[in-house]
């Protein structure tokens, strides 16, 4: 029950993008097309889940026993960078078109603050292994769901009659603001 609660909280009410405002750069950058948004979400989910497991094990079985907890930020960045390199090679091999669509945003997952944020929150909130896994999957699926929804909205917005000076990013940011209010239950 606790795990389901944690999953729903991380997926909806404490969504990583809309309530913590992490990972805005890829959120706005790759949400112009549905397919690249879904690809980005999938890549982030993979990277977060695998590096979540790895960093949890490294933190609790290497850093804590040797009393080198101060290394955690450096080590987490290292693990994330490695995972991103792996997924970049795999996508380049199996889906070159998606690789072209994602472009610079794929290697930029390394510096996506949502990824590092989730990993550091795992440690700060002192989750157990199962809780950590639930939180990682919930948050990254939340990221995927929001970025995909936002991409579909943006595709529809391009067909609509929007005032000249609101076209493009301004109307997109207003949409994000409304979505954020909805997710944090102010509307």
């Amino acid at each position: 029950m606790n795990l389901i609660h944690l999953f729903l909280v991380s997926f909806l009410t404490e969504n990583i993008v809309l309530t913590k405002f992490l990972g805005i750069c890829p959120f706005v950058g790759t949400s112009s097309k549905e397919k690249s948004a879904a690809g980005m979400g999938g890549a982030v989910t993979f990277v977060v889940t695998i590096s979540g497991i790895l960093t949890y094990l490294l933190y609790h079985y290497v850093l804590v026993p040797t009393d080198t907890v101060y290394l955690k930020t450096l080590l987490f960045v290292l693990v994330v960078a490695c995972m991103v390199q792996i997924i970049e090679m795999v996508i380049k091999k199996w889906n070159p078109k998606l690789y072209q669509n994602l472009g610079i945003y794929l290697p930029l997952i390394t510096t996506n603050c949502a990824v590092l944020g989730i990993l550091l929150l795992n440690i700060t909130n002192q989750y157990s292994f199962l809780e950590m896994l639930t939180y990682c999957i919930g948050s990254s699926l939340g990221f995927t769901a929001v970025i995909y929804t936002f991409a579909t909205i943006r595709e529809q917005l391009e067909k609509r009659d929007v005032p000249e000076y609101w076209k493009g990013y301004p109307i997109a940011f207003i949409t994000v603001a409304i979505m954020s209010l909805l997710f944090s239950r102010y509307l």
């Binding site: 490294l58 290497v62 850093l63 040797t66 009393d67 080198t68 101060y70 290394l71 450096l74 080590l75 290292l78 693990v79 490695c82 390199q85 792996i86 090679m89 795999v90 380049k92 091999k93």
Partner: peptide, 24 residues
């Protein structure tokens, strides 16, 4: 000991990367 741990983990990760790069 921190330097040693970082070096060791970076070394292991780089070996994994090289293996996957070679396969893909």
């Amino acid at each position: 000991i921190g330097i040693l741990i970082m070096t060791l983990i970076a070394f292991i990760l780089s070996i994994i990367l090289v293996i996957i790069y070679d396969k893909t």
